[in-house]
Structures are given as structure tokens and as C-alpha cells.
Simulated scan of single mutants.
Amino acid sequence: MHVDIDATCPVCQVSRESINHCLVECPFARASWARTDIGVSTIVDGTFSAWLESLFKIFDEEQRKIIAMTCWALWRVRNDCVWKGKVARVATVTNLAKHTLVQWTKAQDKFEVPTATFLTKEDGAESWRKPAAGIVKINVDAALFSDSSTYSFACVARNDQGHTLEAITCCRNGVVSPELVEAMGMREALSWIKKKSWDKVIIETDCLTVVQALRSAISMDSYFGSLIKECKGLWNDDKNIRIFFVKRSVNSVAHALARASCHVADCTIRGGDFSPAILDEEVQVATEEQAIATASIKLHKIFLAARGKRLGGASLIDECARSWLEGASVIDEGARSGIGG
């Protein structure tokens, strides 16, 4: 089979396309570089990489970022012209480069403090509460394991009596940001709701970034942005789903399950797998936080037992149980004991 390929530049539709022409020499590219106002030369004597290297030697760090992002934006606009039939505009290149650079810079800032943008008075719960009659509540949380270069997320669904209906976990190889894993967990929760055909659902997550992104109309050109777009698509298909930001203390069960999943692969724990003792202990334990802690430890045990994974000698889970009942954090104690990687 023979496929004819047009080598003409899809933007100017005059010259033969090459990497030099597309990103530097095309009249459209030159106009885009002129809009950066940093004095980039559009004369190429050799390869594109040599041209780029020469620029990086004479411009400062901030200007190099603008150069790199403008190259990416030019290529992105060129692809949109070819594959989506969009009209290439210089303003699109400069705005895309500028907006993406701002997002990237914020993502690198470890001291960036998230604001309360897009939050409501219903957000920020500090303790878990049973949902209203007929509503299923799903808690989503993630965990990262730097030692094994893996990450996981868990979703726990409970009914209006506070009883667990089902829980799912996923564990994957890779080194990614916490926000990405939280977004993956949210996508999994929304897909799960669709499969289970639950009518009215509340989703709670302690990732403020994901909640803000879901409520924002801003489109993000990144992998995180594509995950949020998928989540929005699933969310928009079902108007009976509400998503709220909660404090980490609310997500104890989901977090304990996410950390437990590093021991085994993906797992589904159904309502019938949960011992009635969990409910009995929830009644006997004085505070809700302790009840959630006890339930999370039971889930952890069921999870490991279901896969035949048992701990030799003194059980680390039992150590966590005692710590929980003394008011300590299962997450912190688990980290000290080695649970979760």
C-alpha cells in the first residue's frame, strides 16, 4: 500500500517542511519568536540542536525556559493544524507557551501553598460522617513507595449505615507525583460508580489539587490535565455524583488500604468479606476516629489474608492496632514499622 505524504509545511503551505523550518524559519515561527521579545535569532546555520544549544549559551535561565516552551508550543500548534484542522495563530503559540510555563513553574515549586479557590462550605470535613439515606459515600486516597518505585490508590464505598459495601485497590510501577496518583484514584472511583450503577454518590478525597482542578474550567496541557479531563467526562455523565475535599483524618481507611496494597497486586474486597466483628468493635470503641482506625486494620488483615500474604513473628498490623487504640496515627506508626514500603 502506497501513501502519499505532502512534504509542504502545513502552516505556511509554501516551503518544504523540516525541523528547522517548522520551529524557526517558517514565517509563522519567526512571527511567534518575535512576540517573545527576548531577541531570538531565527537564522539557522546547521542543525536545529546546534541552533538551540547556541541560544542556551547566551540567554539566562528564565529566557531558556521561554525558548524551550515556545518550541513546544510551535510544534503543538503545528500538530493541531495537521490533525485537527485548526488555524495556526501567533497569539495561540505565545499564550500556550506562557500559560503552560506558569503551570510547570508552579508544579516545581515545593513551597507553593494551595489556596481555597473553588472550595465551598461543604468542603474541609475533619471526621468521617455517614451519608444521608440512600447515598453511597466513597473515600479515595493514594500512597507512594519510593523504595520500590511503585504507587497505589484505594477506593472504599460505604452505605448510609456506615457499613462497607466494597473496596478496591490498584498498585502500579512507576515514579509519579502525588497529584497524578490521586487523579488516577479519582478516575477509578468514577468508573467504578458507573460499573456498580449506584444512584447517588458522594466522593471524598484529601487532595485539594484534584478537587480544584475538577471544579475549574481551565484546560491543562499535561498528563495531569488529561486525567482531570477524563474525570470531568465521567462526572458530567452522572449528575448524582458530588465530590468534596476533606482533611486527611477523614481518609484513614482508604489510606490504610492504599498502603497495604504494596504487598500484593490489585484487589477487590466485597461486603461479605468483612467480619461482623468490625461493626461490633465500632460500637465498643469510644471515638469515631478509633472506630475508623480499627476498621482500617481489619481491612488490612482481610486484604493480606485474601492473597495468602501473612506476616511472620509479631504482626506489624497488631502493633499498629495497639498504637491506634492508644491514639497514635496508623500512617505514622506504619511508616516506622515498615508497612506500606
Rank of each mutant, 00 (worst) to 15 (best):
V3G: 09
C9W: 01
C9L: 03
P10V: 06
S15A: 10
E17V: 03
S18N: 06
H21W: 00
C22T: 04
V24W: 00
P27I: 02
S32L: 01
W33V: 00
I38C: 01
V40Y: 00
S41N: 09
S41W: 00
A50Y: 02
A50W: 02
F56A: 11
I58H: 08
F59I: 05
C71A: 07
D80C: 11
D80Q: 13
V82D: 10
W83H: 11
W83L: 10
A88S: 10
R89G: 04
T92W: 09
T94A: 06
A97D: 01
K98C: 08
L101I: 09
W104R: 06
K106F: 11
P114N: 14
F118Y: 13
D123V: 04
A125I: 12
E126T: 15
I135D: 04
I138C: 04
I138Y: 02
A143T: 04
S146G: 14
C155S: 08
A157E: 00
R158W: 08
N159E: 07
D160N: 10
Q161S: 14
H163Q: 15
E166M: 10
A167K: 00
T169W: 00
C170S: 15
C170Y: 09
C170N: 15
C171F: 07
L180I: 15
V181Y: 02
M184T: 07
M184E: 10
E188T: 11
S191V: 13
S191E: 14
I193G: 03
I203V: 12
E204T: 08
D206G: 05
L208G: 04
V210D: 03
V211G: 07
D221W: 08
L227H: 05
E230V: 10
K232R: 08
L234F: 12
N236M: 15
N236Y: 15
F245D: 03
S252E: 12
S252I: 11
V253Q: 02
A254M: 03
A254C: 06
A258E: 03
R259V: 02
A260M: 10
S261A: 10
V264Q: 11
D266K: 09
T268P: 08
I269V: 08
D273P: 01
P276S: 03
V285N: 12
E288K: 11
Q290W: 06
A291H: 02
I292H: 07
I292T: 09
A293R: 03
A293I: 09
A295C: 12
S296K: 04
S296D: 05
I302Q: 02
F303Y: 06
R307S: 02
L311R: 15
G313R: 10
I317Q: 03
C320I: 04
R322F: 05
R322T: 08
L325Q: 06
E333F: 05
A335K: 13
S337T: 15
S337L: 13
G340C: 04
